[in-house]
């Protein structure tokens, strides 16, 4: 668990102890640290795919990590278009990956 964390660093020092919190991504529970963004928390647990392209259904993850590209947008507690890279993970947060839209939604204009 959390093997992706940089616990020791020769210049920045050891990672401070953080309070552990629970977040949920597509219904599955993950442990995150207080101070994590949604993107860093999920990557620390090895989750790379955050959404699927609305039309082409291709998987997507973080790209710019500073809010410019909108590739990492997820649904958080029902709110759409939340950038995982700019949003702090909070205890009990419910996060959903954005899925491809069905053909009727794409053509029917219910975007």
């Amino acid at each position: 668990m959390n093997s992706m964390r940089v616990n020791h660093h020769p210049v920045l020092g050891d990672l401070e102890t953080h309070k552990e919190i629970k977040i949920y991504f597509d219904g599955q529970e993950y442990t995150a640290y207080e101070g994590d963004t949604i993107a860093s928390a999920l990557l620390a647990s090895g989750v790379r795919t955050l959404r699927f392209h609305e039309d082409k259904e291709t998987p997507r993850g973080i790209y710019c990590n500073i809010g410019h590209c909108f590739e990492c947008r997820v649904k958080v507690d029902g709110k759409k278009t939340v950038r995982a890279c700019l949003t702090s993970a909070e205890n009990h947060m419910q996060i959903e990956s954005c899925k491809a839209l069905s053909a009727s939604e794409v053509k029917g204009g219910t975007l």
Partner: peptide, 8 residues
């Protein structure tokens, strides 16, 4: 013309 506004 997408979500990023062409920034990328």
């Amino acid at each position: 013309m997408g979500s990023c506004g062409g920034r990328t």
